[in-house]
Computed example of a mutant assay.
Amino acid sequence: MTDTTIRAAGCVLWRRFPGTGDLRLCLVHRPKYDDWSHPKGKLKPGEDPLAGALREVEEETGYAAEPGAALPVLRYVVGGRPKEVRYWAAEARAGGFVPNREVDRILWLPPAEARGRLTQPRDRDLVDALLCALHLT
């Protein structure tokens, strides 16, 4: 039997807001789906999930990221196929956003606003997991 699971990885990307030090989370807007989500994407064949997560963050947001704690794995069905997305907390480092074909906008929002902006309810639990990983809850 062939495993048809779609494997993907991403990060809950965060940084401290310059000046105040307040926590901000990065959400990406994908025009193809008209949704707001955490940066993520499909893994290349044989790609390490963490390496893939960091690659996707940089491709979608323009920011290099310093990985932190592993966050919950999300599992759901897309187009009749199971999908598994592994996530990590990641602090944004150097970089800057440039709109591209996959992501046309990003927002840096406080956790409560990010939770409310996320399109998929399953993505909201990752905000809480990040706050726990950063020892903020």
Rank of each mutant, 00 (worst) to 15 (best):
D34V: 09
D34N: 14
H29G: 00
G10P: 08
R15V: 03
L43C: 01
G41N: 07
T20N: 05
W14C: 09
R16K: 04
W14L: 07
H29K: 03
L23N: 05
G19D: 03
A9M: 12
A8V: 01
V12D: 03
L27S: 06
G21L: 01
T20L: 04
D35K: 11
P31A: 11
D22W: 06
R30Q: 14
Y33F: 14
G10A: 12
C11K: 03
P18D: 11
K44V: 08
P45G: 11
W36S: 10
I6D: 04
D34Q: 14
G41V: 03
G46V: 00
K44W: 08
I6Q: 11
L13T: 15
L43I: 02
P45H: 09
R16I: 02
L43F: 02
R24I: 01
R7K: 14
H38A: 08
G10S: 06
G19F: 04
L23H: 01
D35W: 08
G19R: 03
I6S: 06
P18Q: 06
K44H: 10
A8I: 01
R16F: 02
G10I: 01
F17Y: 00
S37L: 12
C26D: 05
P39R: 07
R7A: 13
G19E: 00
C11A: 15
V28S: 13
R30V: 14
K32P: 01
C26H: 09
C11H: 09
L43K: 00
C11F: 13
T20Y: 00
H38V: 06
P31C: 03
K40R: 08
C26A: 13
D35Q: 10
G19I: 04
P45A: 04
